[in-house]
Nucleic acid binder design. Structure first.
Lengths: 215, 215
DNA sequence: AACTCATGTTAGGGGCTTTTACATGACTGG
DNA sequence: CCAGTCATGTAAAAGCCCCTAACATGAGTT
């Protein structure tokens, strides 16, 4: 047989060796997780999508969890990048930029369900994949810095611990994302967009700390 | 062979027929989910724990998801019960009781990881199991009522929409539970107990709405 | 041109899912 | 009391997946 000729579907192969299997598998995994959730993804099917035998992936990943973990790491990196862009060093207005961070959090969950699922819904043991924890920390670091920056606009005697602020906002954003943005279709209905819900929550929270909320 | 005699380990059987297989399977599933996460649970192993053949569970549950869904429903019911007990109609002090609700949320995630995982980390399609959605709504109803009650202590002109309040608190509680209480061992370390983190967050939030926070 | 080794393949053991046909025995009405 | 019925169990089997081992290929190196 040997379909070594040409006409490959983008991430195809050119002969016995694929040439870029590792990347092709990551792409395939992302696609599958997006379509069927982290539980629906299988190594065998990813291999099928990449056009190789079911055993080939094991040359590049110890097991299915390792592949999923790589997807999650990339997700965290992309997430951190988007968050950093939204924050933009707190310019032009720190509080406003802080709120944008929240919108961006939810937008990521909404627009990148596959990454989001791999990152937060795939039950990967962090022990076995320390780089995952590191990638997560990089993403949280953006939020942490932003909280620092915002807190610093207050006089020292009324300044809250910025780590606590960051954790509160992260928690609310993550909770709203998990409950109302992600999850299967026809999830619980909200009377408002999740983004607006979060923005209101963040505003109420910041107001309490003495940080003027927009108006 | 026929081990139909006596001496069963609690959920044993007494002959060809188990006698209480449905319940035994639910218990087994709960145990397995607690030990290995929703992904680690299998019908075959639950059947093994119950002492029946791998096909027997299908007399009681359409498939693995249906069994897991039943576990989740029971989890939501237990959750609602605990939340209602913590709220206790808002007595003796509404705001204080409201904070207890938050502690109870996290306590549930901490003390009932198996139920919590089945409820929130098992990716069951709500379409296929509408009773799950209903059970979840019953639990959220407690929070909703509490928010109503707390909001009503404010004069109408400064009264926030109680549904929004409930959603904010639910989101923060759920986010903190998901990020810092559940998840595998050695999860991200916090500088404080998750319960205290949440309580602080709720206090800050309520304060902003003009609801005196404890002191 | 021969060698080496990363990267593929085939084959296979073991496990899970779910269905189908069959077995058992608890209950029920004559 | 006894036969019939049906819920609930079992065994067998097809299909899929995981992961490993032994072997094949061919790209890059010397």
């Amino acid at each position: 047989m040997s379909w070594s000729g040409s006409s490959e579907g983008g991430s195809g192969r050119r002969g016995y060796h694929h040439g870029n299997l590792r990347e092709a598998l990551i792409e395939a995994a992302l696609e599958l997780v997006g379509a069927k959730g982290p539980a629906g993804f299988t190594i065998a099917e990813a291999a099928r999508l990449a056009g190789v035998s079911p055993a080939a992936p094991y040359r590049h990943f110890r097991d299915a969890e390792a592949l999923l973990s790589e997807v999650a790491v990339r997700g965290f990196d992309l997430f951190a990048e988007r968050l950093a862009k939204a924050w933009n060093g707190g310019r032009p207005q720190a509080v406003r930029a802080f709120e944008d961070l929240g919108r961006t959090y939810l937008a990521f969950a909404r627009e990148e369900p596959a990454y989001y699922a791999a990152m937060f819904e795939s039950r990967i043991s962090q022990e076995a994949h320390p780089e995952l924890l590191a990638a997560g920390d990089r993403a949280f670091g953006v939020l942490r810095d932003a909280a620092d920056h915002v807190a610093a606009t207050l006089p020292p005697d009324r300044r809250p611990p910025s780590l606590m602020m960051a954790l509160h906002i992260w928690g609310m954003a993550h909770g709203i994302a998990s409950l109302f943005v992600r999850e299967s279709p026809s999830r619980r209905k909200l009377p408002m967009a999740a983004e607006d819900l979060l923005e209101a929550g963040v505003l109420i929270y910041l107001q309490s700390l003495g940080l003027a909320g927009g108006q």
